[in-house]
Design a protein around this nucleic acid. Structure first.
Lengths: 341, 341
DNA sequence: TTGTACGCGTTATCAG
DNA sequence: CTGATAACGCGTACAA
């Protein structure tokens, strides 16, 4: 049973049609559309006409004439697993969308899942389809970073400072300081042998969290107590924790590079017969929904993801408006103390 | 420390510039761009010129002239919590993007988070900015459903059949049949008192899963053994399971409406001192990452989310091409038997 | 206050 | 095979 659908190509009404129906010129129609002095009579007639012919503005034409699209791109360069499951990036999107929406800008989020995607998205951005972009988790050597800099598109980076393109603002948190802070609090609970499941050391956030951990420990830092895994991920949390336990069974404290990693670590500790927090204190990072889902709930670092999104959007809008912006913005990321340590 | 950035407005090169640089007319340039007969000399000169002036096509202009955008919208109408955490929708996006990408279409995903968003997205869709749309989880009374039907935009619904717009194709799974199948398998393990944590009964998927459950149980169905909660969510799984245990402590089998719900239920069962699967058999739905993360891993129904996305995209592309499409497509969703039942 | 005319960058048509 | 030229639908000076 087949049916042809979506074929009614009924040409959409244009300003021209509206003008004709209302008995005025196109210029006048435009004035009621985009604000301007119009007589009451004309306005009434035109509004009636608009409804009658079912006029809907053509954004492509508008964009071409106006040379801007009222749209902002949102790109996340995380690997799949994260894009699909990291609630942070969803929260960032929602925050960004909220402020863009208020400014009557359409946020269009573009997925990059292959080289081909990368090419196409590049053309999309360069093609004037967006007035600006928010780029999450890009690194200096990502092709997108160069592209953005080259075409001079108003943009804001989130999550990883683009050291290549110094004049593009960045918004994020102080990973080093927060990691140090939470490790110090862990030390404060009297733990003696503290290890870390570090993750994503090839990203700034991952490397920074390890740095903060080292700083907090100072002389007591022992490289043997660091297990590093490639991704912020539950499964890698399991793996990393196992490695750590193998190396140092007497471990009594663990800093996991993210809540997902911590959740995996928690499961492993439980399997190994260690009680949390009695035998081992465990802390995470992100304050994602993982943190509340585990038993006991995780002590962690709160990432103000929503605010990060909001600020990123604001920075982009300001650049579009031609206003000056500060080159980077670090938001507060307080330690949240729960029961896992 | 403030800096103005993103202000270099270097006018981008146009076909005109390329033509001038290559010493040919715009028509010829266009022919090398979009395929056509061009002499080798001309082609070489033009390609050199393109590289030289750094020409990038302007999509708005192209869209205006060609009357299509080579873009497809992706809308998810789930409540926040789901949008942020349901891995299924991410997988659907990735599947859809894969086939759109191959067809050189840009997938733009639009978030709808307020009435204002709804309005703006409506204008966006109506404005010719996309040639088609994939709509996840829309229901008949969602404004978007009417809009899509009205403007006759090639579209495909995913997850919930739009009974209002019968001529728009739908792709999904057979929720009733799958729910029945997994409940039957649960019965097959010898469980006597089987309950269900039903969720989202206001959505087709939620209602259908309950229907399947009833069908499987037949005469043995007992309304008292159904707890219903508003969302497919971990926290509601906890809540629903508690209600169920209160009503029937002798429960020995549970069908949770989704894996997230099942995970919450599992935690509750554990707290209540019930062993899974020894004392209580538990099954979920979705085969999301939740299913593998729990201890023991969940028996569940596999949702081919990626394939759903692929097919949805294909259906949209076919409509754009004016080809006939079948009105609806149900994909296989096999039962996956693991250790929780 | 209103109408007119031109430009935005591409694509498409039609002679040459 | 190539070069003019007219749309595409809207914004915006400028003139009325």
């Amino acid at each position: 049973m087949l049916a042809v659908t979506g074929t009614r190509k009924a040409r959409r009404a244009t300003v021209h049609d509206v003008a004709a129906a209302a008995g005025v010129s196109r210029g006048t129609v435009n004035r009621v559309l985009n604000g301007g002095y119009v007589s009451v009579d004309a306005r009434a007639a035109i509004e009636a006409a608009i409804a009658e012919v079912g006029y809907v503005p053509n954004r492509a034409a508008s964009q071409l004439a106006r040379q801007r699209s009222q749209a902002v791109g949102f790109l996340a360069l995380e690997p799949h697993s994260l894009l699909l499951e990291d609630p942070n990036i969803g929260a960032i999107m929602l925050g960004a969308n909220a402020v863009l929406s208020l400014a009557d800008h359409q946020m269009v989020s573009l997925v990059i899942d292959s080289d081909r995607d990368m090419q196409r998205v590049g053309r999309y951005l360069s093609g004037g389809f967006v007035d600006g972009a928010i780029i999450v988790s890009a690194r200096s050597h990502d092709p997108i970073t160069r592209l953005i800099a080259e075409i001079g598109l108003p943009a804001t980076f989130v999550g990883h400072p683009p050291d290549l393109a110094r004049d593009i603002p960045f918004v994020g948190i102080d990973n080093i300081g927060s990691a140090r802070a939470i490790t110090e609090r862990l030390i404060g609970t009297g733990r003696e042998r503290i290890g870390m499941v570090a993750a994503a050391l090839d990203r700034d956030s991952g490397a920074d969290r390890l740095t903060g951990f080292k700083q907090a420990l100072g002389d007591r830092f022992d490289p043997a107590l660091v297990a590093d895994v490639p991704l912020y991920d539950y499964a890698y949390g399991v793996k990393g924790m196992r490695a750590l336990l193998d190396r140092e069974p007497a471990l009594d404290g663990v800093f996991a590079a993210s809540d997902a990693v911590a959740a995996g670590a928690l499961e492993t500790l439980r399997e190994a017969g260690r009680r949390v927090p009695e035998d081992v204190g465990l802390v995470g990072f992100d304050d994602s929904s993982w943190a509340l889902r585990t038993q006991p709930p995780l002590s962690t670092v709160h990432q103000p993801a929503r605010d990060i999104g909001r600020h990123a959007a604001e920075l982009v809008l300001r650049q579009i408006a031609g206003d000056p912006v500060e080159p980077s913005l670090l938001l507060d990321s307080p330690v949240v103390w729960r029961q896992s340590a």
